[in-house]
Amino acid sequence: MYQKAFRIFKQNPWQQAFLYGNLGSRIGSIALGAGALSLMERISEDMKNAMRAKDKAKTGVLRMLLSEFKYAMTSEQRSSTLEDDQALKVITAYCKKLKKSLDAYPEGEKRAEIAQEISVVESYMGDSVSS
């Protein structure tokens, strides 16, 4: 009986915050009045929204971008996050990979899918889109 109650208490982050005294880190950046989301956080949130909307194409592209971010984090400096300029470099490199694969396919269904992926990736590149 006691173990079950303790397990529930242990899983609730609000109660953990009270227990450990770090309420600010448990509430999150929204309650603390932090500014805009970083590029990596925005892509993560957009992936969650695409999953809720059952948009498989966009979800797949955003998962690949997050995978590229994780690969860059482990290979370069072993950090937990990427700065926006580093994330933009990763996005640009991924977009170049997609454009190379676009040239490899003849006209058809796969080429249209890759073009759609490129448009999703370029939407996160902002003003630095180079055609």
Rank of each mutant, 00 (worst) to 15 (best):
K4W: 07
A5H: 07
A5S: 09
A5L: 13
R7E: 14
K10T: 09
P13T: 06
Q15A: 11
F18N: 09
L19N: 10
Y20G: 05
N22A: 08
L23A: 11
L23V: 13
G24A: 14
R26P: 00
R26I: 14
R26V: 15
G28A: 03
G28D: 02
A31Q: 09
G33M: 08
G35E: 08
G35S: 09
A36H: 00
A36D: 10
L37S: 07
M40F: 05
E41F: 01
E41L: 04
R42I: 05
I43P: 03
I43M: 10
S44I: 00
S44R: 04
S44K: 00
S44C: 09
D46N: 11
N49S: 11
K54E: 15
K54G: 01
D55V: 00
D55L: 04
A57W: 02
A57C: 04
G60P: 00
R63W: 15
R63D: 15
M64F: 10
L66W: 00
S67D: 14
E68C: 11
K70T: 13
K70G: 15
Y71R: 12
A72S: 13
A72M: 12
M73A: 07
M73R: 07
S75W: 04
R78N: 15
S79I: 12
S79C: 08
S80Q: 09
T81F: 13
T81S: 11
D84W: 00
D85E: 14
L88G: 02
I91V: 11
K96F: 07
K96A: 15
K100D: 14
L102N: 03
Y105V: 15
P106Y: 01
G108R: 01
G108Y: 03
E109S: 10
A115N: 11
V121M: 07
E122P: 06
E122W: 02
Y124N: 02
D127H: 11
S128C: 04
S130D: 14
S131T: 02
